[in-house]
Amino acid sequence: MRRTSVPPGPEARAGLTLRGVRIAIRAHVLIPALDLDIGPGECVTIMGRSGAGKSTLLAYIAGTMEPAFSAAGQVAIDGVDVTGLAPEQRRIGILFQDDLLFPHLSVGENLAFGLPASLRGIPARREAVERALAEAELAGFARRDPATLSGGQRARVALMRTLLAAPRALLLDEPFNKLDAQLRHDFRRFVFDHATERGLPILLVTHDVADATAAGGRTMTLEA
């Protein structure tokens, strides 16, 4: 594994830090300069219209920004600068509006895909998958085809898959948008409970005020 450092202990955790992040497309500046500290277990919401650069900001943090954009600034996790790292080396989890479960894998295989390889042995991995399913109130769903699940169930599997990869920060790109009102409420709780329980810094982007209220933390608005 190509990791730059050993994950620090809980006392060393500084959360997600952005320093002087600037994003532009051609001559049009979307985000002039953003400094942000999100502590472990804290959730910060960024609001803004579509096209304001919300998703691009998350893509920059995750390392998957489209080359059409230009960006600068530092991203650090738990005090370690990850700006120069490939996305797969950053250990940042992200959830989108679409669950993006892999259709060729069963629910259990989707979760096993997220589990680190350091957890060895089929029985141990299967147990970890079962535990995650139980947490998502989906016990016994391991062999199911993701296509047979409801929207809410799929969303929960997507979150568990992300969390099983043991990320050090969680980015939420309007993941509640496609769910209907009741489901949206339940899934929000589900996400925030699990992420805060693991002490993850959360950055949520949305254009829905209810999301921001539910998140309960600081809220910022992108004007561009």
């Binding site: 390392g63 490939a86 996305p87 797969e88 989890g93 679409d98 993006l100 895909f113 997220g114 990869a165």
Partner: peptide
């Protein structure tokens, strides 16, 4: 949706 699925897989630690 190759680009999006690859993005997710990279986020989960795969090259």
């Amino acid at each position: 949706p190759a680009a999006r699925h690859l993005g997710i897989a990279r986020m989960l630690g795969y090259g």
